Simulated assay, not measured.
Amino acid sequence: MGDQLWGGVRERVEALSGVVVPTQALRYPVLSRRFRLDPVLSPADVAELEERIGVELPQEYRTFLLQVGAGGAGPGWGIYTAQLRPGYPLWSGHNADTADYSRLAEPFPAAPLEPAVLRALLAQCPQEGDDRDLAHLDALGRWNEAVWGPDRTVGAIPLCSLGSAREQWLVLSGPERGGIWTDERADHGDLAPVPDGSGGTVTFARWYLDWLGSAEQQLSNISRE
Rank of each mutant, 00 (worst) to 15 (best):
G93C: 12
G93Q: 05
H94I: 06
A96M: 08
T98N: 05
D100Y: 07
S102H: 09
R103D: 02
A105G: 10
E106A: 09
P112A: 02
P112V: 00
L113G: 01
E114Q: 12
P115R: 10
V117N: 02
V117H: 04
R119H: 02
R119S: 08
L121P: 01
L121S: 01
L121W: 00
L122V: 01
L122T: 01
Q124R: 12
C125Y: 00
E128W: 05
D130R: 03
D130E: 03
L134H: 04
L137R: 06
A139P: 00
N144F: 03
E145A: 15
A146Q: 13
G149C: 07
R152C: 06
R152P: 05
T153C: 15
T153P: 07
G155E: 12
S161F: 05
S161K: 07
S164N: 13
R166S: 12
W169A: 05
V171T: 00
L172H: 11
G174N: 08
E176L: 09
G178W: 13
G178D: 14
G179D: 06
G179S: 15
I180K: 13
I180Q: 11
T182N: 15
D183R: 00
E184C: 10
E184I: 00
D187H: 13
L191I: 03
L191G: 04
A192M: 08
P193S: 12
S198E: 12
G199R: 10
L209C: 12
W211V: 15
